[in-house]
Design a protein around this nucleic acid. Structure first.
Length: 342
DNA sequence: AACTACGTCAACCGCATGGCC
DNA sequence: TGGCCATGCGGTTGACGTAGT
C-alpha cells in the first residue's frame, strides 16, 4: 500500500478508497462534472490514475446508484434476458437497469455463472424416491417399478409437459454462450461413447435453446458422472427453465434432461451446431431492442425509450414461474445422504 | 472454535475506441 | 494520416463476510 500524499506524481496509489479521497473526488465532480479524470492526478488532488477515479465515481460515488440492495427478481429477469440477447455487453445491459452499473451486472452474472457451474459439476440425485430405501446401487440407468418412483415419474412427466406448454411462449434465441459438442472440452474429459450413445436429441441442433450459461458438455458431464448415492447436496431450483419442442429441457435441479428421462437417469445430451444469429439480434436498432417476452411479462417503454419487460407486482422469488407440478416435484424428499444411510 | 466453501463486492488490468492535434 | 491521450468496456482477481460442517 502506497503512503498517501507526498506530492510525488509518480506514486500512484492503489487499493481501497478512503473517505477523504472520495470527498476529493466528489469535489472534483461538483466543479468539473464527471470528466477530466486525468486532471485529478495531474493537479495533485489525488494520487490516483484517471481511470481509477472514473471507476470509483461510476461504480460507487454516483448519486443515482442503488447501493446495498441485491438484484430484484425483476432485474434478474432483465439481465438474463438481455444477456441472451446482447451477450456480455454489460454496459449496454446496465443501461436497462437504472441505478446499476456495468460492474454490478457483471458481478451478478459472474456469481450466477459460478453457481450454475457448481451445480452442474456437483453430483446430483438421479431420482428422488419418496420413501423407498435406496437398496445397494440404483446408479445411473437403474430402473425401478416401485409405485413411489412411478409417482415421481408421472409428476416429472407432468412437469415436463407443463414446461413445454410454458416455454412454447418464449421465443428462444441463440445466445453467445459458449457451446460445446458433447465431450469437447479442455476442462472435462470427453464422455465415453456409451455414456451418451442413447442421447435422443441428435436432431435438436437447430432448435435447442441452450440457456445462457449452460454448456452441453457441462450438463452431460454432470449427469453422467453423478450417481444417485453420491448426492449430498440439496440444490435450489434454478430460477428459470428452458425448453422447446422435443428438445431437452433443464430440470430445475440442474440436470439437462428430456421429459422421459427426468427421473431415471437418462440424461439428455445435445449436439449443437453454431447458428447464425438473426440480423436484428446482432445489432438491434434502438427501436428494435425488444427483449423477448419472459413468462408473461408485460412490456413498457423505459426512461431510455426502450421496450423492456415489466412484471406487475413482482414477487421476491422466481419460483412462481414454475408450474405447480414442478414445485411439487422439488418438494419431494431427497434421498438420504450416504452418511445418513450408514 | 476452527475450517471450508461460497457469495459479494471493489478495484485493477489490458485492450478498444474516439477525439484532438 | 498517424500518434497521443482520455475514456469506456470487459475480464479477472482478491479481500471480506457469512453460512455450513
Amino acid at each position: 500500500m502506497q503512503p498517501r500524499g507526498g506530492g510525488d506524481r509518480a506514486a500512484v496509489r492503489k487499493g481501497p478508497w478512503t473517505a477523504e479521497e472520495d470527498e476529493v473526488l466528489h469535489q472534483h465532480v461538483r466543479e468539473h462534472g464527471p470528466r477530466e479524470w486525468s486532471s485529478i492526478r495531474s493537479k495533485g488532488l489525488l494520487p490516483r490514475t484517471g481511470k481509477s477515479c472514473r471507476l470509483r465515481w461510476v461504480n460507487k460515488l454516483r448519486p443515482d446508484l442503488k447501493t446495498g440492495c441485491k438484484f430484484s427478481s425483476e432485474e434478474e429477469r432483465v439481465v438474463i434476458d438481455l444477456q441472451a440477447q446482447f451477450g456480455n455487453k454489460w454496459a449496454r445491459i446496465a443501461t436497462y437497469l437504472p441505478g446499476r452499473t456495468d460492474n454490478d451486472v457483471k458481478n451478478f452474472w459472474s456469481t450466477r455463472q459460478k453457481r450454475l457451474a457448481r451445480i452442474l459439476r456437483a453430483p446430483l440425485p438421479r431420482r428422488r424416491p419418496a420413501a423407498a430405501k435406496h437398496g445397494g446401487g440404483g446408479g445411473v440407468g437403474a430402473t425401478s417399478s416401485s409405485a413411489a418412483t412411478n409417482s415421481h415419474e408421472a409428476a416429472a412427466a407432468r412437469a415436463s409437459e407443463a414446461q413445454y406448454r410454458c416455454f412454447g411462449l418464449i421465443p428462444f434465441q441463440q445466445t453467445t454462450t459458449r457451446q460445446h459438442r458433447i465431450g469437447e472440452s479442455s476442462q472435462e474429459p470427453p464422455l465415453a461413447a456409451n455414456q451418451y450413445a442413447d442421447a435422443p436429441f441428435s436432431g435438436a441442433e437447430s432448435v435447442l435453446p441452450f440457456p445462457p450459461g449452460f454448456a452441453a458438455m457441462d450438463v452431460a458431464a454432470a449427469g453422467c458422472s453423478s450417481s444417485y448415492g453420491a448426492a449430498s447436496e440439496v440444490h435450489r431450483p434454478l430460477p428459470f427453465l428452458y425448453a422447446s419442442g422435443s428438445a431437452p429441457t433443464v430440470d430445475p435441479g440442474g440436470l439437462f434432461v428430456d421429459g422421459n428421462a427426468l427421473i431415471d437417469g437418462g440424461v439428455g445430451v445435445a449436439y449443437l451446431e453454431p447458428k447464425p444469429e438473426p440480423e436484428h439480434y446482432l445489432e438491434p436498432k434502438p427501436e428494435q431492442r425488444t427483449p423477448p417476452r419472459f413468462f408473461g411479462l408485460e412490456e413498457e417503454v423505459d426512461d431510455y425509450g426502450l421496450v423492456v419487460p415489466v412484471r406487475r407486482g413482482a414477487p421476491d422469488v422466481l419460483f412462481d414461474d414454475l408450474p405447480p407440478e414442478m414445485i411439487n416435484f422439488f418438494e419431494l424428499p431427497l434421498p438420504p445422504s450416504p452418511s445418513a444411510r450408514l
